Deep mutational scan, measured.
Amino acid sequence: DHDVVPEDKFQETLHLKEKEGCPQAFHALLSWLLTQDSTAILDFWRVLFKDYNLERYGRLQPILDSFPKDVDLSQPRKGRKPPAVPKALVPPPRLPTKRKASEEARAAAPAALTPRGTASPGSQLKAKPPKKPESSAEQQRLPLGNGIQTMSASVQRAVAMSSGDVPGARGAVEGILIQQVFESGGSKKCIQVGGEFYTPSKFEDSGSGKNKARSSSGPKPLVRAKGAQGAAPGGGEARLGQQGSVPAPLALPSDPQLHQKNEDECAVCRDGGELICCDGCPRAFHLACLSPPLREIPSGTWRCSSCLQATVQEVQPRAEEPRPQEPPVETPLPPGLRSAGEEVRGPPGEPLAGMDTTLVYKHLPAPPSAAPLPGLDSSALHPLLCVGPEGQQNLAPGARCGVCGDGTDVLRCTHCAAAFHWRCHFPAGTSRPGTGLRCRSCSGDVTPAPVEGVLAPSPARLAPGPAKDDTASHEPALHRDDLESLLSEHTFDGILQWAIQSMARPAAPFPS
Results as ranks from 00 to 15, higher is better:
Cys416Trp: 02
Leu308Tyr: 09
Thr311Ser: 11
Pro293Gly: 08
Pro368Met: 06
Ala508Met: 05
Leu258Phe: 12
Val246Ser: 13
Leu384Pro: 07
Pro464Val: 13
Ala319Asn: 10
Arg412Pro: 06
Asp406His: 14
Gln257Arg: 13
Tyr361His: 04
Gln392Gly: 10
Ala284Val: 04
Pro389Ala: 06
Pro332Phe: 14
Ala288Thr: 09
Pro372Lys: 10
Asp481Cys: 03
Leu258Asp: 03
Ser339Tyr: 13
Ser305Glu: 08
Arg423Ala: 12
Arg423Leu: 10
Thr408Leu: 12
Cys289Asn: 09
Asp271Ala: 08
Ala310Glu: 09
Pro332His: 05
Ser339Trp: 15
Pro374Arg: 07
Ala310Ile: 14
Gly453Phe: 15
Ala507Asp: 05
Leu252Phe: 08
Ile500Gln: 02
Gly346Tyr: 15
Ala310Met: 15
Cys304Thr: 14
Gln392Asn: 08
Thr414Glu: 04
Phe426Thr: 05
Glu320Trp: 12
Leu395Tyr: 11
Leu455Tyr: 14
Leu250Arg: 10
Pro389His: 10
Pro247Phe: 15
Cys289Arg: 10
Gly354Arg: 11
Pro324Ile: 11
Gly465Cys: 13
Val454Ser: 08
Ser254Trp: 11
Lys468Cys: 05
His382Asn: 13
Lys261Arg: 12
Ser339His: 12
Gln316Ala: 10
Ile495Arg: 02
Ala370Pro: 10
Pro464Gln: 10
Ala460Glu: 10
Gln501Phe: 03
Gln313Tyr: 08
Tyr361Leu: 11
Trp302Ile: 10
Leu486Val: 03
Phe492Tyr: 03
Pro457Thr: 12
Ile276Arg: 08
Ala371Leu: 13
Val246Glu: 11
Thr491Trp: 05
Pro457Ala: 07
Cys424Asp: 02
Thr358Gln: 06
Pro450Met: 14
Glu326Asn: 09
Pro367Gly: 12
Glu452Met: 00
Gly436Glu: 06
Leu487Cys: 04
Asp279Ser: 07
Pro433Ala: 07
Trp498Phe: 02
Pro293Glu: 06
Thr331Lys: 06
Met355Cys: 09
Asp470Ser: 08
Asp445Leu: 09
Leu364Asp: 07
Leu290Ser: 10
Ala456Leu: 11
Ser473Val: 07
Ala477Val: 11
Ser379Pro: 06
Pro335Cys: 15
Ser502Gly: 15
Cys307Ile: 13
Arg270Gln: 13
Cys307Leu: 12
Leu250Glu: 10
Gly375Pro: 09
Gln242Pro: 13
Pro317Val: 10
Gly273Lys: 07
